[in-house]
């Protein structure tokens, strides 16, 4: 499978406080890639770099087979982008905003736009500046979808929207993706939301990509184990111990990565026993991963 987005050895610096170092990122064609990370971790900056809005200090970015920034205008014609903040002209009405946007995209689909306009219940004579946050979110998604892109780059598209609007926006997105087999690169703080439909996940913190794996592997690979009789320094195991905390008595709780059920045999030694394997959901896994990345305690 080829990749819709490929980033190699990317380096970018914004002031003295923030830096992206040696970033490697791969988004397979047709994937829905959830991009997670705490505030200020570099998610928005990475997105802006991959769309040519910022110039990297070093590294290579390829989007849909073309190189950024060399082919940026050509690439942007095939990419739908929903930024974190709505950046449209506040005095243009919804209808005028659609006409403005449509003029720049040869692939613009008016009938699909009209359908989404009705579906999202947007008043076409209302100025963009007077729309509610939810309506703005819907319009941004409408613009990104009606240009029929091959790749959608969505920077927290449902942030601050109520659950009803969020569901409408995501349902339109998934509807489009299923029709067009488009690639989606989406960042969000709503980890549970991404868990439902993403098939790949990348986690970023402090300008570095901590992990990039298929969602199933991420969800199933991070476990909390209740063990007893474990040696103070465990031998190299088939999984990665991210953290270990003493419980009562000789018991301990381990947080492990890359866990598979067959690895239970690791605890078959004398005096050592594995009592319980606890599943973590994406949010727990994400939080634990960040906790251990920032200060490993194993």
């Amino acid at each position: 499978m080829t990749n819709a987005i490929e980033i190699h050895n990317l380096r970018y610096r914004a002031g003295k406080a923030f830096e992206i170092r040696d970033l490697e990122l791969h988004v397979p064609h047709g994937a829905i890639y959830g991009f997670l990370g705490p505030n200020g971790s570099g998610k928005t900056t990475t997105m802006r770099l991959m769309l040519g809005l910022l110039r990297p200090l070093a590294g290579r970015i390829t989007v849909l087979g073309d190189e950024i920034p060399r082919d940026v205008a050509h690439i942007l014609g095939r990419v739908g982008f929903v930024p974190e903040q709505p950046h449209l002209d506040p005095i243009l009405t919804v209808r005028e905003t659609l006409a403005f946007h449509a003029a720049f995209y040869s692939t613009w689909d008016w009938s699909w736009a009209e359908r989404l306009l009705r579906q999202f219940d947007l008043q076409d004579r209302q100025p963009f500046g007077r729309l509610s946050k939810g309506q703005k979110g819907k319009l941004m998604m409408l613009l990104a979808l009606a240009q029929r892109p091959e790749l959608l780059v969505l920077d927290e598209p449902t942030d601050g929207l109520d659950p009803v609007v969020r569901r409408e926006v995501l349902s339109a997105l998934l509807d489009y993706v299923s029709q067009r087999q488009a690639t989606v690169f989406i960042s969000s703080h709503l980890v549970h939301e991404l868990e439902r439909f993403c098939d790949w996940v990348g986690v970023m913190d402090d300008g570095r990509l901590i992990t990039e794996v298929p969602m199933e592997r991420f969800k199933n690979g991070i476990k909390r184990l209740r063990v007893s009789g474990a040696p103070r320094t465990p031998a190299d195991g088939p999984f990665v111990v991210l953290a270990r905390e003493p419980t009562n008595g000789s018991g301990e709780t381990w947080l492990v990565r890359d866990w598979e059920p067959r690895m239970a045999s690791y605890f078959d030694g004398p005096g050592v026993s594995l009592h319980e394997v606890i599943d973590l959901d994406l949010e727990d896994g994400f939080v634990e991963l960040l906790r251990t990345f920032r200060g490993p305690r194993a």
Binding site: L51, G52, L53, A73, H74, I75, L76, G77, V79, F81, P83, Q85, H87, L88, D89, P90, I91, F104, Y105
Partner: peptide, 14 residues
């Protein structure tokens, strides 16, 4: 309009 949108919209037009 571009200054208000911090040029983001303008810069992502193809």
């Amino acid at each position: 309009p571009d200054h208000r949108g911090r040029h983001v919209y303008a810069l992502v037009l193809p």
